[in-house]
Structures are given as C-alpha cells and as structure tokens.
Write a protein that binds this DNA or RNA. Sequence first.
DNA 1: CAGACGTACTACGACAGGCGAAGTACGACA
DNA 2: TGTCGTACTTCGCCTGTCGTAGTACGTCTG
Lengths: 108, 108
Amino acid sequence: MISSDIIRGYNDTIILFLLLEKPSYGYEISRQIRQISEEKYVIKETTLYSAFTRMEKNGYIESFYQDDIDSGGKRRTYYRITEAGRAYYREKCEEWNLTQDVIARFIR
Amino acid sequence: MISSDIIRGYNDTIILFLLLEKPSYGYEISRQIRQISEEKYVIKETTLYSAFTRMEKNGYIESFYQDDIDSGGKRRTYYRITEAGRAYYREKCEEWNLTQDVIARFIR
DNA sequence: CAGACGTACTACGACAGGCGAAGTACGACA
DNA sequence: TGTCGTACTTCGCCTGTCGTAGTACGTCTG
C-alpha cells in the first residue's frame, strides 16, 4: 500500500510516537501501527526490530524485560522513550512539516 | 535542511514533475528544485544523475542530445518524460496523498 | 594572463535502512 | 496432533543516496 521508500527513516518517528504514551514492545507497536493507519501501513517485523536496536544504540529508547501474566509468563522486551528520544521526535515532527510543504510543491 | 531519508524515492517524482512541462537537463532541473523549494531542498548531483539513469532504464524518461547556442555550443543531455513516466508520476502523487495522511497520524 | 567560478556532467565506492527468508519457542484451541 | 497467534532473532541482499574526485569548457576578474 505504502512504499517503503517514503516511510524510510520515518519508521523511527512512528515508533517513538507510540512510545510517548507508555512503554511498549514489538508486537503491540506493530498492531498499533496497523490499526492507526487502518491497514494502510503494516511495518515489517525485521524493520521494526532493527529500528529498536538502532534507536537504543542512539539513546532514543531504553529496553527492559518484563514477564507479563497475560502473555502466559513469556518474557517480552519492552522499550521506553528517553528524553533524547522525545527531543528527536520533536525535531522529526518539525522536519516533517517542512518536508511535507516542500514535496507538495511538486505534486499535482 | 531536508533529510534525504524522507525524500528518498521521491526524487524521481520531483524530477518527473519538472519534466511534465518540457524536456530538460540536469543542471536546469537542479536549479529549479532549489528555486521552487526556496533553497530548502538542494538535490545532490550524484543523486540527480543516477535518478536519470534509473528512470531511463525503467522507461519513464528518454534522453536526447542537443547542442545549445546559449551554452556555447556545449552538448547537453536532455530528458523527456514518456507516457509511462506520466502514469508513474500520477501513481506517485496518489501514493503521496495517502502516505501524507497516514504519517500525519503519528505527528504531533 | 592566470586563476577562480559556473556549467555540465561521469565514475567509483561506501553506507544505511528496509526486506525476504528462515528459524525458534511457547501457549491456546480445535 | 497440528495449526494459529504471539514474540522475537539472524543473515544477507538490494536500492537509493552521498562523498570524493575528476574532466572539460567558457566567462569573468584582478
């Protein structure tokens, strides 16, 4: 539906948006993206998990483990947004507004 | 100003937009992008010329040579948009509208 | 008259992000 | 018993962008 080349580099922003509210984990984030976008964007598993790794390395998110009761005691990797992550998200939002405006000039 | 990751894969669309009007060549297109975007987006030469190569391979544009008087008789490589190119451009515009709408849901 | 600047490219190689394919593990449900 | 859903991990390919560099020619400037 949506080509990956446009969203490229914006996946991080999308993930951070969902983490603003509360810490979350891969599968839940994946589901939320699908739901919020009304199935128009379904993030690939590999894309999602590699984004986690990258963003943790960049200090935008922090991981922790939690054994949840509702998942039958299975261990999930949760991620929590950091202050740096929030700042990065804000920057990206501004950049998005700018980009959107510029690209619109080339669209009919 | 604008990160290349967002515009990635959208450069083709931007170039095709400029070719809708009339055939053109690298330097002119580069100048127009800078001008229309009000310096907010300056396409890199390598990006531009590799986009030409790719799009010609895909049949979206056709090249031809022209010795222009105003360039001191220097040979320029002009590009002309094809029917397939126009169709591709139209598709991309629709995709853009969709993507824009989806990403907006993750932006504050 | 030399050198810088603008035009108009081409070639090469690096890099990053996304993605396909495959595999693992476990619980629930039929 | 087997499939489905959850929850990941690993590996390696592909594509588009970009940095660096080089070529060539004409004009303009000190």
